[in-house]
C-alpha cells in the first residue's frame, strides 16, 4: 500500500496499526453517512417548504449574499487549513507545533464563519424572520442551524484534539483521531456547498 493511497495523516509507527486505523475510519464513515441522511432529509423538508412563506419574510429578505460568500470562503479555508494540518501530522510528526498551527488556522477560520452566521441569525430576528413565522422560516432555521451546530461541535472537538496533542504529542492514537475529525470537517464543507447553492443562491435566483 503506497502512502498516497492511505488516508492523510496516517503514517503510523507500528505494523498492523494502519489496518486497525482503517477499520476505525470506515466505522466513522458509517457515522458520517448517517449524518448525511439526517441533513438530506432536512434538505427535503426545506424543499417542501421553499414556497411557504405565509406572507412573511422570504428568501429575498433573509439572503445577504455578501455574508454568505464570505462564510463560504471561511469554511473552505478552514477545510483547506485542516488538510494542511493532516499533511503536517503525516510528514512532520516530530514538530507538534506545526500541526497545531494549521489546526489553529482551521479553527480561527471556522470561528469567523460562525460569528458571521450568528450575525445573520440576529439580523433575521430583527426583521421578524423567526422560525415560528412560516414553514419556510422553520425549515430554513432548522437546516442552517443544524449545520451551524455541527460546526460549533467541530470547534469543541478541535479544542479537545489540541489539548490531547499538547498532552500526549502526535502518537498513533492521536493521529487516528485527528484523521477521523478531518472526515467530519470536510463533510461539513460538502453540506455547506448544498446550503449555499440550494438554499441561498437558488432562493434569490
Amino acid at each position: 500500500m503506497s502512502e498516497q493511497n492511505v488516508h492523510p495523516g496516517m503514517n503510523l509507527g507500528y505494523d498492523g496499526g494502519e489496518e486497525e486505523a482503517e477499520v476505525k475510519i470506515f466505522g466513522f464513515w458509517a457515522f458520517v453517512m448517517s449524518d448525511l441522511v439526517t441533513f438530506g432529509l432536512v434538505f427535503a423538508i426545506f424543499g417542501t417548504m421553499a414556497g411557504s412563506t405565509a406572507g412573511g419574510p422570504g428568501p429575498e429578505e433573509v439572503t445577504d449574499l455578501t455574508s454568505v460568500a464570505i462564510q463560504t470562503v471561511l469554511l473552505l479555508g478552514s477545510s483547506f487549513g485542516f488538510s494542511w494540518a493532516s499533511l503536517s501530522m503525516k510528514y512532520h510528526p516530530k514538530s507538534r507545533w506545526r500541526t497545531l498551527g494549521w489546526l489553529a488556522v482551521a479553527a480561527t477560520s471556522a470561528l469567523g464563519f460562525l460569528v458571521l452566521e450568528v450575525v445573520d441569525f440576529h439580523h433575521w430576528t430583527t426583521i421578524g424572520a423567526v422560525p415560528q413565522r412560516s414553514g419556510y422560516l422553520s425549515a430554513l432555521w432548522a437546516l442552517v442551524g443544524l449545520h451551524g451546530l455541527h460546526v460549533a461541535g467541530g470547534l469543541i472537538w478541535m479544542a479537545a484534539m489540541t489539548g490531547q496533542i499538547l498532552v500526549f504529542g502526535l502518537t498513533d492514537d492521536i493521529k487516528s483521531r485527528v484523521t477521523r475529525m478531518g472526515l467530519y470537517w470536510h463533510f461539513l464543507d460538502v453540506v455547506w456547498v448544498g446550503i449555499f447553492s440550494m438554499v441561498f443562491l437558488a432562493g434569490v435566483a
Binding site: 470506515f26 464513515w29 453517512m33 448525511l36 441522511v37 438530506g40 432529509l41 427535503a44 424543499g47
Partner: peptide, 16 residues
C-alpha cells in the same frame, strides 16, 4: 457505503 447512502437518501428525499 457512500453510494448506498445516496440511494437510500434519494428514495426518501425524492419521495418526500
Amino acid at each position: 457505503l457512500l453510494l448506498f447512502t445516496i440511494l437510500l437518501l434519494g428514495m426518501m428525499a425524492f419521495g418526500t
